[in-house]
């Protein structure tokens, strides 16, 4: 088990190195896209600052608190995006026949799809999100008990696994419907957008749906309520603040099973 995991990581890093070198073959494009990405992700935080230029609180949340939500959600999201965001291009691989080629290599297909077209540029978004998170931590006015401090890295890790699981499940669905990547984006990019703000601003119905149907509330909302010392608007028990890792694990298992079923039902293309 440990050996398999180590080998998976080794293969992933080998492929990441190959794709990074390939990306560097187009240096101008690489530099321009890096700048463009930095500007676009930077706009997210500008939007939050603009809101707080007009109001001191958003649904009773202060600026450092919203920055904390943004920082945790985005760090988790962009980590998952960097590591395996390209799995949403699976439909393209199926259509182009390149998925066949991946199945001929002595490596897990999921690892190859995840590493596909990797570019170091993606890490820039993680850096931006981490910066916001660190700034918010220095501004937050909460008593830093060990359990609060420990929950922060844990929620980021669990959040990344939740996003990753959604990505992989969505990719698995593309074995059946090759054009489904747009629908998938609604859950990933859309989910990241939603969880950057206090979920309570969307109203109780949405809050309920994001807890029980698409469990994005466990990416950062539930644990953040504990860290920020706030009551749950839905009145869920205290235990819910700490179940994110379990939710992440459960979703990861579902995603792995969906992926396996997808590969087994893979139909390839002609010739």
């Amino acid at each position: 088990m440990v050996e398999t995991l180590a080998d998976t990581v080794r293969v992933y890093l080998l492929l990441v190195r190959m794709w990074s070198r390939a990306a560097w073959a187009y240096r101008t494009s690489f530099v321009l896209l890096t700048v463009a990405t930095a500007v676009v992700t930077g706009l997210d935080i500008v939007a939050i600052l603009l809101i707080f230029a007009h109001t001191p609180r958003l649904a009773d949340f202060t600026l450092p608190e919203v920055m904390f939500l943004y920082g945790t959600s985005s760090t988790a999201f962009y980590l998952a995006d960097s590591i395996l965001g390209t799995v949403d291009r699976l439909g393209g691989h199926v259509k182009a026949g390149t998925f066949d080629v991946m199945l001929l290599r002595p490596a897990r297909a999921l690892v190859q799809v995840a590493a596909d077209q990797f570019t170091p540029r993606r890490l820039g978004k993680v850096a931006q999100a981490v910066t916001v998170l660190v700034v918010s931590l220095s501004l937050l006015d909460v008593p830093w008990t060990p359990s609060r401090a420990l929950l922060v890295p844990l929620m980021v890790a669990a959040g990344a696994v939740i996003y990753g699981a959604i990505w992989v499940s969505g990719a698995a669905f593309q074995f059946v419907a090759t054009d489904a990547s747009e629908a998938l984006n609604a859950f990933t990019f859309g989910g990241n957008f939603l969880t950057q703000y206090p979920l309570v601003i969307y109203g109780r119905e949405w809050l309920w749906a994001l807890t029980w149907i698409v469990p994005l509330a466990f990416v950062n909302w539930q644990p953040a309520l504990y860290v920020l010392g706030r009551p749950d608007p839905l009145g869920l028990p205290l235990a819910f603040r700490f179940v994110s890792p379990a939710v992440a694990l459960a979703l990861a298992v579902v995603a792995a099973l969906a992926w396996r079923a997808g590969v087994r039902h893979y139909r390839s293309t002609g010739s």
Partner: peptide, 21 residues
Amino acid sequence: VALARRIGVVFGQRTGLWWDL
């Protein structure tokens, strides 16, 4: 995966090589 280590495959119309390298 175990089989992939014991066989070699060439698809004439598709390449397994890295295009830009």
